[in-house]
Design a protein around this nucleic acid. Structure first.
Lengths: 336, 336
DNA sequence: GTAACCCATGTAACCGGTTTCAATAAACAT
DNA sequence: ATGTTTATTGAAACCGGTTACATGGGTTAC
């Protein structure tokens, strides 16, 4: 009933388990005849060695942790897809965690992954931490994991932690610029919390474009949300109801775009007739349907690939200096 | 540099590692004073015991395998989300695999999960196996895993394997019926491969509705695909170009719906003006945008929850008879 | 013929936990 | 005071692999 072990194979082959282990790992010369005999038995018995025992013995594992805030968001789904492709190609194993953008769940997930002794960590931190203390705690836990960490999409400044990010600064800059070139001056941005570097980058790109065009930014157009559709919807509702409302809007992820659209639609309005929109991230379904949403394109699958590649590299060369990867973005305009 | 172990804690506390283990597991009475001392040290040192060692010693694990064909498809993303919620609540660990609907990758993933000695398996088999031999091989591997298996969404008849499925028969029946009631008689179905039970169920539901209405089915309207957008697109293109083409179409998943729309749009046509459509599965983005696609609703997240719940139950009561769960579907019609 | 070497394999310790069993001391009963 | 029970803890084996080191037979060199 119980699982067959290396000892069972050794017994049946009349050798010691060391020899079987050598066959399994191709680690030392084994007499071809013996090797053959052992391999035959292994196949006949469908013996698969226990990764648990191997990991314990080797004091390592081939397991990678993957922690993101919203696994059912296509953005992270695409990232995950990219990650898994490389994972498969390298015979690694992926443990997935979802945090709902809730730092408590982040910490719980990291704890669990430490317990699992993962070899590396791919991580998009929750948006909701704020205090310096929480940040410190996070940094400490990451350090304690004794394992390379690669951040995805969202940056936190921590020593020794690499990351793959999008160039949201220029994404926002170019999107804003495109709107300005089409005559817009009252441009709103539905951003995430400015506590976070990424959101500040986006705001900076947006501000820089305004400044370069000599447009005075209106603080009322500078919205802070949390990446969720519901909140973007609420913010948009207010925004659209303003008497001096903007003529163009930029969002900060796919959910925010949808939230904006929902609010807009409720008013019986639409883009670009009543207001212009440039969304952050393509929404595949809309594109296929021929629904022409302008967007800042970011290749999430590519980000996933680059992140896991960086992680594997860091696993291979632990000492090597960390260098972030910044991925380009492209502004795709149908009609403003 | 290396990880701190139970022995380190024991040394520092001046006790044996057995006692530390007892504290960790609350498994036996330990003098409150000793317990306190040990716990303090554990916290001070941020000791997290190795799951690997524990698993080896206990000859079990808290790890669940999750194998699906297309992790970046929102349908599976939703399932995954449901699964993870329950996983978290039960302090389990989830290993994710993607198969691209390719049975070779299925087998490779299952092998890997066996190696990891997972406690249970959530599995949506690839669509592309066909021969009896392959099916046998799959059954054998699943049996060899010595672990409960719960199938998700796609059924294969194997002894001792439970599953959670949607009632696609009635979904299709009701969708077809709705179309008929709106006057359609030439109704096409873009299905998956009829090698599979699920696709046959759907065809049966569709056929039954036609029969109940006294409509002779047209074999040319009975399309077989592979769940992918590209193929649905090709099939739809041909279908729409037929001279005696159907007046209504039913698809078999979200990708198929999009493929159909793409083909339709290329012809400058749209629903429901030129042809009626009922898609299988809601497409959230379209719904939010107010794009009124009729659909057969299936709650994928709920399926995920039910599947992992069933799995946990089977882990707890290994002997218990297997009983499948069939989830209802609802036809949502905007305009036909 | 013997020393030096190589090849194939076995022995045993080890990884970091859990668990059974035994030991000791304190508490209790008589 | 002595025997019995109970509470707390330690010693040691075990889980299923890996690996450093030892062993022994067969070659080769001289």
């Amino acid at each position: 009933m119980t699982n067959i072990t290396i000892q069972d194979i050794a017994n049946e082959a009349g050798v010691s388990k060391a020899t079987v282990s050598r066959v399994l790992n191709n680690s030392q010369a084994v007499d071809p005849i013996t090797r053959n005999r052992i391999q035959t038995i292994i196949e006949k018995r469908h013996f698969v060695p226990s990764a648990t025992a191997r990991n314990l013995s080797k004091r390592t594992s081939d397991t990678i942790g993957f922690v993101v805030p919203e696994i059912d968001n296509p953005f992270f789904g695409d990232i995950l897809r990219g990650v898994i492709e490389i994972i498969d190609a390298n015979n690694l194993t992926l443990i997935c965690c979802n945090t709902d953008d809730n730092m408590d769940k982040d910490l719980k997930a990291l704890e669990m992954l430490k317990e699992q002794r993962v070899r590396g960590l791919l991580y998009t931190p929750a948006i909701d931490y704020s205090t310096e203390e929480e940040k410190k705690r996070l940094g400490k836990i990451l350090k304690e994991m004794q394992t390379p960490v690669v951040l995805m999409d969202r940056r936190i400044s921590l020593a020794d932690v690499g990351g793959v990010y999008f160039d949201d600064y220029h994404g926002m800059y170019n999107a804003t610029k495109a709107l300005i070139e089409h005559g817009h001056t009252k441009i709103a941005i539905i951003n995430a919390s400015l506590d976070r570097v990424l959101a500040r980058d986006r705001r900076d790109g947006y501000m820089a474009a305004l400044k370069d065009a000599g447009i005075e930014p209106d603080p009322r157009y500078n919205l802070e949300g949390n990446y969720r559709m519901t909140q973007a919807y609420e913010l948009s509702k207010k925004l659209l109801a303003m008497e001096d409302r903007p003529t163009a809007v930029i969002t900060c992820n796919n959910r925010t775009s949808l939230g904006f659209y929902k609010a807009l639609r409720e008013r019986g309005e639409k883009t670009p007739r009543d207001i212009a929109l440039i969304g952050l991230d393509r929404i595949e379904e809309l594109d296929v349907m021929g629904y022409e949403m302008n967007y800042i394109e970011r290749d999430a699958k590519e980000l996933g690939k680059r992140a896991i590649e960086m992680l594997i590299n860091r696993m291979a060369f632990p000492g090597k200096a960390v260098r972030d990867v910044i991925l380009d973005t492209h502004v795709k305009i149908y009609k403003i």
